[in-house]
Nucleic acid binder design. Sequence first.
DNA 1: GGTAGACCTGGACGC
DNA 2: GCGTCCAGGTCTACC
Length: 295
Amino acid sequence: MRLALPARPPFSLSSVVRSHGWIRLPPFGEDDGTGGLTRIEQLDSGHVVEMLIQEATGGVTVEVEDELRQAERDEVARKVKWMLGLNQDFAAFYALAREEPKLAQVEERAQGRVLRSPTLFEDTVKTILTTNANWAGTIRMAKALVSQFGDPLPVDPIQHAFPTPDRLAATDEQTLRASARLGYRAPYVLELARAVVSGSLDLESLKAAEIPTAQLREHLLSIKGVGEYAAANLLMLLGRYDFVPVDSWACRVVSHEWHSGEPVGPTEVEAAFEHWREWKGLAYWFWDWSYKSKA
DNA sequence: GGTAGACCTGGACGC
DNA sequence: GCGTCCAGGTCTACC
């Protein structure tokens, strides 16, 4: 099965894939031969498929080796549109960015879109895995969750989809601690999965919720394990850029950029981007910090 | 509202 | 090889 999906220009699949570290967390992957984005995905029917997404004129193509029913094709299209933000419009951000040398490249590079998982559940779990852990630890925990609790791809059972909320809700804290080595994050992931399964938390509805960002943020902060950094990260994934996801790295680069290396906290980081208003998160995310990371 | 300490893991380091 | 220390956000108890 092959689908062609249009994207609002400017668009660059490479820019989306390299927008942050999600590409290194399974079930995302990169195709060695084409450089395209791969994804093992469990469809609503239970069918586990591998998607190969490649850039094409005006958008992307999606290839799945299996034959899919119409409902499954529609689901694949819907999920890919969301993952890549194909309809997102950054014209207002680009207009402001043209005036800032540290963001001068964003429009030319078609930056702005951030790779996201098909479900907010998966993005929330992964965000919790990024907290209080180095990147290697986040990758290790994500791999463990996927390999141990995700359904296998039939033609290549070594590969697995991301576990469904039902599958994670059916396990227990000790298993998540012992086999996936989530540490103290285990009860957070478990509580999240059980809340989604019970219906007490409707994460998917937040994607289209027409409520102020501050209210959406409060909703996210009510999830155990989601603090200010995690909420801001999830807001970015939801297309709300009013807050900066302040972690220790953000404090370091802002310190060196504007405070002569003196220690700074979240207040100073937010203040540094205050004038970007509803584009704060994107301005921070795509700011040219390159000379700092080389230091 | 602000702050200190605990939470858990892996890596770095010293012995 | 073993023990200790540290980094990484969030939660909870306490003031």
